[in-house]
């Protein structure tokens, strides 16, 4: 299901020529749209993000330089607008991913979705899970009788952890969402 949504939104191979001419901003925009529309977390676009960050850095330096050496203020403001637009895309992309991680951290950390996160995101997910676990333990779980204190299982005697059920529920949910998203993108 995951690969379905990725392939479905990708670029057809016949458009190879246009792919070469595609700028990173275009790719970033596509990644942002996909990430926003997909219910589950997609593969982190490590290379693209790194390239975008470099370009933004470069452009920031250029704009600063232009502002100092008295280039036409109109030109400077246009460069600044372009920079702002790219930064918006990048920030929004990263934030949507963080939102998803916060929302589904237990599910993500227990499935192969984990490999789709970047190093920093994995660190973030790990920390959030730890904090959540600590909080639940302090506020509720530690007061429960022994055997009911796991955050993953309903009770120590349950065979499979209940996260499993939740995962399968989520998976179902994802399946459906992808299905519908596929529809929306047919229209695209």
């Amino acid at each position: 299901m995951a690969s379905g949504s990725e392939d479905g939104l990708g670029i057809p191979s016949k458009d190879y020529d246009s792919l070469i001419a595609t700028t990173d901003v275009e790719l970033l925009k596509r990644a942002w749209q996909n990430e926003k529309a997909a219910p589950e977390i997609l593969q982190f676009q490590a290379d693209l993000i790194r390239r975008s960050q470099e370009q933004i850095q470069l452009m920031e330096d250029t704009v600063e330089e232009y502002a100092e050496n008295g280039t036409d203020p109109l030109t400077v403001s246009l460069y600044q607008m372009d920079l702002d637009r790219t930064q918006f895309l990048l920030r929004s992309y990263l934030r949507i991913r963080l939102q998803k991680i916060e929302k589904y951290m237990l599910h993500i950390s227990k499935t192969e979705l984990w490999n789709r996160l970047s190093k920093q995101e994995q660190k973030f997910a790990k920390r959030s899970t730890d904090h959540m676990e600590k909080h639940l333990k302090q506020s509720v779980l530690s007061r429960l009788p022994y055997g009911y204190q796991s955050i993953l299982k309903q009770s120590i005697s349950s065979e499979d952890d209940d996260m499993g059920t939740i995962s399968s529920f989520c998976a179902n949910h994802f399946f459906l969402m992808c299905y519908c998203l596929f529809l929306s993108f047919l229209i695209y």
């Binding site: 990173d24 901003v25 109109l74 372009d82």
Partner: peptide, 10 residues
């Protein structure tokens, strides 16, 4: 009159 703009998006 303005010189070409070499923006991130093109």
């Amino acid at each position: 009159k303005m010189d070409p703009l070499n923006l991130i998006c093109g």
